[in-house]
Write a protein that binds this DNA or RNA. Structure first.
Length: 558
RNA sequence: GGCCCCAUCGUCUAGCCUGGUCCAGGACACCUCCCUUUCAAGGAGGACACAUGGGUUCAAAUCCCAUUGGGGUCACCA
């Protein structure tokens, strides 16, 4: 690690429209490590699985990377960044390169063709497992003479290429895990080119890391044992050995691996609890629904999952960076919190920004243990960030969030209403989304507001004498006689009323008012709420409420 | 199951390499009280961990071994 000027790291995901938080953290650490040492950060797309990469251009996750503030020096061209002299950066466009390297291996006797079908291998694997043995490829294809191989190839028989492993133990040196030796018996002659002509992950990684001059490989710990294979490949090809650092996995609170499948899991649970047998209207069509219910391995696409969740009223767990964005988390908070999963700068520092991470990140301070993703702490960090930002900034960012995710809300409020709501909401917002999610009553038509008789409403409206409903009724004519409707004016009007009628206990008056206009006991500060709603709307709601509770009480006394 | 790795509060972690300053520090969550027009936020307190068992040593969270527990991995996925 002495020649810091030439440090090159890479983030190498498979193509996807969304960036997973685990991937985001890997990208973050790769970026920080390289950029903090004057090096380069490369983005490479691992799209060698034709089944999964039907849409090779789908690097929608690039937007997530940019949102977090991570930009690549080299990689796919995307919104003004990318390019570079080691491209192409899509592996599917590098087949010629792999084939040339593959040929070198064949020529040198380090690799060989094999003709077993996937089904045959599968059967052997099952048999081995049933017999309680670990399956290893039996090298049957190595017995084929070269004439036979040529004939098979010439006849167009499907073939894979396997690496001929040297049969020695491999010792991995890892910056975070230290040294580990994988016994030779654990590594069989693995496939390096698939029958479809594409290289496997192992082969493409090794070739590209060499050709793209990658010096440091930071990746998730699930790749740790793969490293032995990669080292064998490097030796066979005569390549350099990059420095490895394997990052601990990020898991759910229950210890399971955080996965996009968790969304489907949550949905299946909700569907089962509600005993739904057919899909709610306008969510997914019946055939998809049936297939999904029948097979736990089938995942709904993201949009369909979201529609279904909205329809049955369940919150999907946030898994992708975009999910957290939608939930109203700030990118700088995500960056901060993600970095804290698996790494810490020491000295009891835990609030920091991207720039701090860039200058302080060191893989040697990465912990070895898997981290459980603690949403409560993330939420707390987000709250701190929101409540400490300047009011104008909060307003601007909340407006952007609202326009993207709650256009109906923005339209209903109008610019001045939005400003009032934003000002009233900042100090009680843990996310940018809360002011929208929590104030649905603002969207309800005045004559459609309902008052559900929960314990809190009961207490606010009917307990004591005079009760809240009495106060409300007395207050109504005073409000009706008042033209000005600013929060300050309303406060100046209601405070004296409370002093006189409720012994100065503003709550005795504010709560009934709140219930009247919001339908429940939770809203922004009451005078702000009234001002946001406006005079006509507020009065209409209060009148209806007075009537509503009056008839309710009459019915009860009868 | 084979192999590899790991093990400090419920959670994220500091400390471990270079044993003594650690009857273990911070943060989130939790509990209590205060403040309060709701909900939050805020203020003040509090409870909470070195997995277990053996060594080594004058001395171990720190070094060694075993056990137990957890994770990862064993594909023509990446």
């Amino acid at each position: 690690m002495s020649d810091t000027a030439s440090i090159v790291t890479r983030f190498a995901p498979s193509p996807s429209g969304n960036l997973h938080v685990g991937g985001a953290r890997t990208a973050l650490f790769c970026w920080a490590f390289a950029k903090g040492r004057g090096g380069r950060f490369v983005l490479r797309i691992e799209d060698t699985d034709q089944k999964r990469s039907s849409d090779a251009a789908s690097i929608g996750f690039a937007k997530d990377l940019h949102w977090l503030g991570i930009f690549w020096d080299e990689g796919p061209l995307w919104q003004g960044t990318g390019g570079g002299e080691h491209g192409p950066y899509f592996q599917s466009e590098r087949l010629d390169i792999y084939n040339a390297q593959l040929q070198r291996l064949i020529d040198a006797g380090h690799a060989y063709y094999a003709f077993e079908t996937a089904a045959e291998l599968d059967a052997k694997r099952k048999a081995a497992t049933a017999a309680g043995r670990a399956y290893r490829y039996d090298r049957a294809a190595l017995q084929l003479d070269s004439a036979q191989v040529s004939a098979n190839l010439a006849s167009g028989m499907p073939a894979v290429i396997r690496l001929k492993c040297p049969g020695r133990d491999v010792t991995i040196c890892d910056e975070v895990l230290g040294e580990a030796t994988i016994p030779a018996t654990e590594i069989d002659d693995f496939v390096i080119r698939k029958a479809d002509g594409f290289p496997t992950y192992h082969f493409a990684v090794v070739v590209d890391d060499e050709l793209m001059r990658i010096t440091h490989v930071l990746r998730a710990q699930e790749h740790f044992t793969n490293t032995a294979r990669h080292m064998l490949l490097q030796d066979a090809l005569g390549f350099r050995r990059p420095v490895y650092a394997h990052l601990p996995i990020i898991c759910n609170p229950d210890g399971s691996k955080m996965s996009k499948r968790d969304k489907d899991k949550a949905l299946r649970k909700a569907v089962a609890e509600r005993s739904l047998t057919s899909p709610p209207a306008a969510t997914v069509d019946a055939s998809v629904w049936n297939a999904w219910l029948a097979d736990k391995n089938i995942q709904l696409d993201l949009d369909a999952a979201q529609r279904l969740a909205d329809s049955i009223g369940v919150a999907l767990p946030e898994i992708n960076v975009d999910d957290f964005k939608r939930s109203g988390y700030l990118p700088e908070v995500i960056v901060n919190f993600l970095a804290l999963n698996g790494w810490s700068p020491g000295n009891d520092i835990e609030k920091f920004d991207l720039e701090f991470l860039r200058t302080h990140f060191d893989p040697r301070r990465v912990v070895k243990t898997p981290a459980k993703f603690d949403r409560a702490k993330l939420l707390s960090f987000n709250c701190d960030a929101i409540t400490s930002m300047p009011a104008e900034e909060f307003e601007r960012r909340a407006a952007a969030h609202g326009s993207a995710y709650h256009p109906d809300f923005m339209a209903r409020l109008g610019p001045s209403g939005f400003t009032m709501l934003a000002r009233a909401s900042q100090e009680r917002s843990k996310t940018l989304d809360e002011m929208f999610r929590g104030n649905r009553f603002l969207l309800v038509a005045d004559d459609e507001l309902c008052w559900e008789m929960g314990k809190q409403v009961q207490k606010a409206m009917l307990d004591g004498s005079p009760c809240g409903a009495d106060h409300l009724e007395a207050l109504l004519p005073i409000l009706e006689g008042h033209a000005s409707w600013s929060a300050a004016d309303l406060e100046a009007l209601v405070k004296p009323f409370a002093d006189e009628r409720a012994a100065g206990q503003l709550g005795k008056v504010a709560q009934p008012l709140r219930v009247a206009v919001a339908g429940g006991t939770v809203s922004p500060p009451i005078f702000d709420t009234l001002a946001i709603l406006g005079r006509e709307s507020s009065l209409a709601r209060i009148r209806r409420c007075v009537t509503h509770f009056k008839s309710l009480r009459e019915a009860n006394t009868r």
